[in-house]
Structure formats: structure tokens, C-alpha cells
Amino acid sequence: MIGKLLQVEFMKLKRKGIWFLVFLGPFGVVSLQMVNYGVRKEWFLHQGTYNWDYYVLNVSAITPFALILGIVILTSFMASIENETNTWKQMLALPITRWSVYLSKYTTLLFLLIIASSLLAIFSLLFGIYLDFQNDIPYVDIIRYSFYPLFAALPVLGLQLWISTVIQNQGLPITVGVIGVILAYMAYFIPDWLIWKWPSLDNQWNEPLLNVYWGLAVGIGIYFVGMIDFIRRDVK
């Protein structure tokens, strides 16, 4: 059943420009570095930081923040597809369980975000190769910095999906999202327990994997809270 529902979800994404956004996110992140390296190449050379490691760090500085924005936009898009003419009432009167509807929305979003993260890894690699650094390509780091933030951002994904499916007025989920974006932007100044900090992979123990574990654990927790609320609600 989930398989069929996923096919249906992807059908609904047609002509919505969502695939363009999935491309634009990672492309935007890398193109910021294109500008950065275009303008300041000499400076990097002068500082002795014109190398792969420093480049990967530069890319990853923007990733968390772009990721949170992407989550906010994509979840709101997914919810607005059903909210626009209230297709919830049509869909939920079909012989499917509500949890499978919620799960298929979540899975679709996760799939889109995995595509975006993969594109990010590819774009970072390609532009890095173009920059022609002297040291070896740190494949593992590139993959790590492309996917760790996604796992660490699962609580935010769960939260945004929850509020954008249960609140009709998309202004509110987007506002909550913007606050999250601001917090993600200030990641290094906010306390470790705030979920918006986690995608930055920064914590007081300097152990990025911790954020990934927290993200998975709390992400699953928030997912269930949202799903249970979604199941219990009356459909207007």
C-alpha cells in the first residue's frame, strides 16, 4: 500500500516546480562558493587555505541553513497540494489508513531531500575538481558533510510536516520555519539542545556523529507525535 501511495504522491508533484527547487538548493549552496572562490581565490592562496579540506568546510558552512530552508519550503508545498481544495477529505475517505498517508508524505519528502543531498555531494565534488586543489579528494568528508546534516535535521522535518499538515494557514508553519532558519544561521551561538542547531554538526564535544544520533532518535519521536496527532484529528 505504501508503494502505491508513494507513486501517487510523486504524481501529485508534477508541474509544481518541486524538482527545480530540489536542484536549486544544492546548486545555490555550491554557487555561493563559486562566487566566494571567484572573488577571493588570491586570498585563500595567500592564507595557505586553498585546499580541499578548507573548501569542504566552506561548503558545509551554508549547508545546514539551506537544508532547513529546503525543508520548510518542501513541506509547505506538500501540504498546500492537499490544502488548496481540501483534498484531505477525499483522500482520507479512501480505503487507506491515515498512518500510511502520513508516512508516504514523510517518505516522499525524505526522498526529495536525499536527492538534494546527493546533488550537493556531486556539485561540491565537481566544482572542487574544477578548482584544481593540490591535495587528494576527501570523498568521505564530502559525503559526510552532505548527508550528516540531513539526518541531524530529521526533527525539523518532522516538526514542519506536522504543523503544515494540521494547520490550514501555511503562513504559520512558514513563520515557524523562518524562526528555525534564523536559529540555524546562528547555530554556533545557540544551546546544544535546540534541534535547529543539530544540522550544523556542532556540539560542545566536537563529535558530529552525536548530532546524527540525536537527529535520528528525536526525529523518529517527533515523527510519531505528528503522525498520532494527524490520525486523531477530525478532517474538516
Binding site: M11, I81, E84, T85, N86, Q90, M91, A93, L94
Partner: peptide, 27 residues
């Protein structure tokens, strides 16, 4: 059961055929 509740629900960006396809798949 087949049902139609209040105002029609549809996905405006999809064609009539595609709209029905989203439901047919589930059935």
C-alpha cells in the same frame, strides 16, 4: 463506498485523468 463530500476536491495542476489516477491507484 464511493463518496463526494461538500465542495469538489481536486488537484488543480493535474488533468482530469491524472486526478482520477491518484485515486484509482489506491483502490
Amino acid at each position: 463506498i464511493g463518496s463526494l463530500v461538500e465542495n469538489p476536491s481536486y488537484y488543480p495542476h493535474l488533468t482530469a485523468y491524472e486526478n482520477l489516477e491518484t485515486i484509482r491507484k489506491i483502490y
